[in-house]
Computed example of a mutant assay.
Amino acid sequence: MMDNKPRMAITMRPWLILSLVTVLALLVNLPIFLVVFNSFQSTDDILAARSLIPRNFSLVNYLYLGERTRFWTFLGNSVIVAICSTMLGMVAAVLAGYALSRFQGPLLGAYAKSLFAIQMFPIIMALIPLFVLFRSLDLINSPYAICVIYALINLPFATSMARSYFDTIPRELEEAAWIDGASDIGAFMRVVLPLSGPGLAAITIFSFLFSYNEYLIANVFLRKDDTLTLPVGIQMFMAQYSNDWGSLMAAATLTVLPTLMLFLLAQKFITPGGLSGSIKG
């Protein structure tokens, strides 16, 4: 009988940990659940409700978004801008990070130090000069302008992340590829990049989320309704004396879907231990 108690405690411990983690996850994500639930009821029902779970579910808010607003245009603009800026920044960050990781020199050292200095520079101080520059280039109300700005803002941090991850990849793998006849570019493309999945996935998620959620720069450079991104376009649901809370909840629910899909796609690349045993034997 004395031996059964420790065994029961060991058996129950995983269930207790799982229950605790589940409760904490529900509490942390409670605001998200409330937004989703409230998106299925009108604004009047939201203001009059006294319970967390709505009683009358309705699709009126989603129908309103599709029929009487330009929500899908805003969503498309945000997705296009986020994808383009992420791809542009990723190419530059990966190449710069690899160069900083594998080569040394005074010029590269100065560039690496300048990355940290640029990160401390507040972007709001550069908005007016950038606006004047892009206006002279006729790029105001153009997604190309904010794509370039977003890529440049993400570049210092993305380059630092790429360099840190490339430092963890053994150089012996590239040397083995060179012995097999691969060129420098071939070793980078066939050996280093495939092993950089977790690092590249993390950089992609960070860059995409920043570009997808950014408001200030988009509000300055985009003024026409057909060019607005989601953070700027959603503010139209807020008036001076009243807010359309039902439409806001529905828009917020649909806004989460692209980022959720990105996390699901990138999840398989974020796997630990991909380099373990790669140079053993």
Rank of each mutant, 00 (worst) to 15 (best):
M1Q: 08
N4Y: 14
K5D: 14
R7N: 11
A9E: 13
A9P: 09
I10P: 08
I10W: 15
T11G: 07
R13Q: 15
F33V: 14
S39V: 08
S39G: 14
T43S: 15
D45T: 09
A48N: 14
I53G: 03
N61R: 06
Y62Q: 09
T69V: 06
F71Y: 14
T86M: 05
T86V: 06
M87N: 10
A93V: 08
L95D: 01
L95N: 02
L95Y: 11
A96R: 10
G97I: 00
Y98R: 12
L100D: 00
S101D: 15
F103H: 15
G105Q: 11
P106E: 13
L107A: 13
L107I: 14
L108E: 13
G109H: 08
Y111K: 06
K113S: 13
S114C: 13
A117K: 08
F121R: 08
P122M: 00
L130I: 02
L133S: 07
S136P: 00
L139C: 03
Y144E: 09
A145T: 13
V148A: 15
Y150I: 03
A151H: 03
L152M: 12
F157R: 04
F157E: 04
A162C: 15
F166P: 00
T168M: 08
I169C: 04
I169K: 07
L173I: 15
E174V: 05
E174P: 02
E175S: 09
E175N: 12
W178A: 06
I179T: 10
D180L: 09
G181F: 08
S183V: 04
M189D: 02
P198S: 04
G199N: 01
L200K: 00
L200H: 02
L200Y: 01
A202V: 06
A202G: 09
I203N: 01
I203F: 05
I205N: 04
I205K: 04
F206T: 08
F208T: 00
Y215L: 12
N219H: 11
F221D: 00
T227Q: 09
G233I: 10
M236K: 14
W245M: 13
S247M: 11
M249W: 01
A250E: 02
A251Y: 01
L254I: 05
V256P: 00
L275F: 10
G277E: 09
I279C: 07
I279P: 06
K280T: 10
G281A: 13
